[in-house]
Amino acid sequence: MRAVFRVLGAMGLVLAVGALWYVVSGHTTATVAGESMRPTYTPGERVLLERVEPGEVRRGDVVLHASPEWYGGLPAVRRVIGVGGDRIAQRPGEPVTLNGKPLAEPYVKDGDPSGTGTPEYDVTVPEGRLFLLGDHRANSNDSRYFLTDRSGTVPEDEVRARALDDRSGLVAAGLTALLGLVLVGGALATEIAGRRRLPVG
Rank of each mutant, 00 (worst) to 15 (best):
I81K: 08
S143Q: 05
I81R: 08
R197C: 10
Y41G: 11
V4S: 14
F131C: 01
V125P: 14
P92W: 01
G201C: 07
H65R: 08
L64F: 01
D110E: 15
D61R: 06
E120T: 15
D165E: 12
R58K: 14
P113N: 06
R137M: 03
G93D: 13
V171H: 00
T190P: 07
D165S: 07
P75H: 09
F131H: 04
V14Q: 07
R195N: 04
A187F: 01
N139H: 15
N141G: 10
G44F: 09
L103T: 08
E35L: 13
G93P: 12
G82L: 10
L133P: 14
P126N: 09
Q90G: 09
D112K: 03
G128Q: 06
T40G: 03
P39E: 00
R46W: 06
G93V: 08
L13N: 04
A16E: 04
K109Q: 15
R6G: 10
R144L: 04
V123P: 01
A104W: 15
A163F: 06
N139K: 14
R162K: 14
S114E: 12
T118P: 12
R167W: 05
L178S: 04
G128H: 04
V47F: 07
V184C: 10
P39Q: 02
T31V: 14
T124S: 02
R144T: 02
T31M: 03
R137N: 06
V23W: 00
S114N: 11
E53Q: 15
R144D: 09
A163D: 03
G34W: 03
G180E: 01
R2L: 13
H27F: 11
R46Q: 11
V57I: 11
M11Q: 09
V200S: 14
L130Q: 02
G93Q: 07
E105S: 12
D112V: 06
N139C: 05
T176M: 04
D166A: 13
L175F: 04
R195D: 06
P39M: 05
R91P: 11
L175P: 00
D122N: 12
V182C: 14
D166F: 08
A177H: 02
E45S: 12
L133E: 11
R59P: 00
R196D: 10
V52R: 07
E53G: 11
L178F: 12
E53L: 15
A30Y: 14
E158A: 05
L8K: 03
H136V: 11
P68N: 07
G174S: 01
G128L: 05
V47G: 09
A187I: 00
V108P: 10
T28A: 03
T42F: 12
G186C: 01
V80R: 02
S151K: 10
A19S: 08
P102S: 05
A3Q: 15
L20N: 05
R38P: 10
L130M: 06
V7T: 11
G12V: 01
A172P: 08
V17W: 01
V7R: 11
V96W: 07
P199A: 04
G9P: 13
G72S: 10
L130C: 04
T97F: 08
P39W: 02
Y71P: 02
L98N: 09
R78T: 13
Q90V: 05
R167I: 02
P155N: 05
V83P: 15
E53H: 14
G12Y: 01
G169N: 05
A161Y: 12
S151D: 13
A173P: 06
T124N: 00
T176K: 06
D149M: 08
S25D: 14
P119H: 00
R137L: 04
